[in-house]
Every structure is written in C-alpha cells, then in structure tokens.
C-alpha cells in the first residue's frame, strides 16, 4: 500500500447513457512513470479528472498519495499537480509571470527563485519574459509542464503531453518527463501512441472499452503481441526520420 502512489479499484463512470469506465483497476508504484495507453475517447481524460479531484466517480475507489480522492480532496490536491490535455497557461502573462503566479498560489516562500529555477531546468530562459501568446506549441507545453513542477508535488498527471507537437518538440518534452522521474516524482501520463509509452514508461496499461485490458512492463506486453514475423521489405524512411535527419544535420554544422 505505502509503496503505491496511486491505487484505483473498480472505478466506474458514465456520462448519462455513455458508460466510459467499466471497472478500472490499477496501481502506480511510487517514483515510477506509468503510461495509460488508449485510443481517442477511451476514457483517459476521465480517469485523470477523477484522480485530480475534478470529477466524481460513480463507484469504485481511488487513492492518490494515500488519500482517498472523494473523501480527502484537499489532501490530494496538496500532493499533486495536473498538466491537462490542452495547455493551461495564461496567454497574456509571460512565462515567468505564469510560474510566479502558480508559486504564489502554492504559498511558497520564494516565488521568484522557484520560477527562475524552473525556467532553467526546462530550458525556458530565452522565452521567460515574452508573452506566452508568442510561444510555439512545444515551448508552451514545456511551460505548462514547468508550472506543474512548482512546489515539487509528489504525483504529477500529464494528459497527452505531446499531443499536437512536432517531432522535435515531442522529444524535448520526453526529456523533461524523464528527468522528473529521475528525481523520484511519480508520473501518470496518458497517450495514444505506443512509442511514447515505450519511450517513457516503466509500466504501461492499455485502456479499452472501459477496462484495463493489459498492464505490465514493456517486455510483459510484448509477449502478448503477435509474434514478430520476419519479412524482407524495403523500409521507406518515415517523415519523422527524415525530419530528424535534417534537423540533426543542421545542428552538426
């Protein structure tokens, strides 16, 4: 129990007639990265909203950092932070002001210092004093994540953190997430892409038709996949390969 940061049992949720969650069970070990993999509309955001106290489940229990989300929402909120599916940043403020605002709302001693630290850590110093409205998608997302890191919450929720980002920005975000886990923070992230889960997560759970249909490490899951066939085909480079090759060349120059 104490080794789990998140514990979910028999979670059910419907929106009117639509049964989105049909008894979801999973656990997330302290200090690990857990990926919830599911297609669009599978119910990932619904789970994240329940765990972050934004939404009440119909039945089942969920605990975060040892606190029941329904019974002790204030304690849960003290322990977590959320980076929602759409970047929740203030467009008119600068990046630095956004971070200071969150630090103040978390009642930290030195909001300016904390903001500076995170700007450095998330490579945002160049953009720090521009209005967020001028940021590119990737920079905006990094700020969004940086805002979630303020106050060192024990558990961080990232709902589709790389959705809509170009390949380069995606890799930047991955880097930030990996650093997080290295610091002992528990991360629950959702994604639609297997490769993202593969890149980041210690454990992967697949959400399908309201239930977790598979849950394990990547190698556990690979055993469940159909055996790899050996075929000889000419492999065309994907758009992503081409893009990265060009960017890589540019940086070498």
């Amino acid at each position: 129990m104490l080794n789990n940061s998140i514990q979910v049992q028999g979670l059910q949720k419907s929106y009117k007639q639509l049964h989105v969650l049909n008894g979801v069970d999973f656990e997330v070990e302290k200090g690990s990265i857990f990926a919830l993999l599911g297609s669009n509309g599978a119910g990932k955001t619904t789970i994240v909203k329940i765990l972050t106290t934004l939404l009440k489940q119909d039945s089942g229990t969920a605990a975060v950092n040892g606190f029941d989300v329904a019974a002790k929402p204030d304690d849960v909120r003290q322990s977590i932070s959320l980076t929602g599916q759409f970047a929740a940043v203030d467009e008119i403020l600068t990046g630095r002001e956004n971070l200071i605002m969150i630090a103040r709302l978390r009642h930290l001693e030195n909001p300016h210092q904390d903001a500076d630290d995170l700007l450095n850590r998330c490579s945002l110093t160049d953009a720090a004093d521009r209005a967020v409205a001028t940021y590119s998608g990737g920079v905006r997302r990094r700020l969004d994540i940086a805002m979630s890191l303020i106050g060192k919450p024990k558990v961080i929720f990232l709902d589709e953190p790389t959705n809509g980002l170009d390949p380069e920005a995606r890799i930047e975000v991955w880097k930030t997430v990996k650093e997080l886990a290295a610091n002992g923070t528990t991360v629950l992230l959702t994604t639609q892409y297997l490769d993202e889960a593969e890149q980041l997560a210690d454990r992967i759970a697949i959400l399908h038709e309201g239930k977790i249909i598979a849950n394990g490490t990547l190698s556990d899951l690979k055993k469940l996949f159909p055996p790899a066939k050996v075929e000889y085909i000419e492999k065309q480079p994907s758009l992503e390969d081409i893009f990265l090759a060009i960017i890589g060349k540019k940086e070498e120059k």
Binding site: L54, R77, S81, F86
Partner: peptide, 13 residues
Amino acid sequence: QSGIFERFHSMPI
C-alpha cells in the same frame, strides 16, 4: 475554455 480553471481547481486553493 483554456483549461486554466482546471489547473486552479486541481490545486490546493
């Protein structure tokens, strides 16, 4: 719309 309210509501305020 922007989700910033959701961020606030998931914080201890």
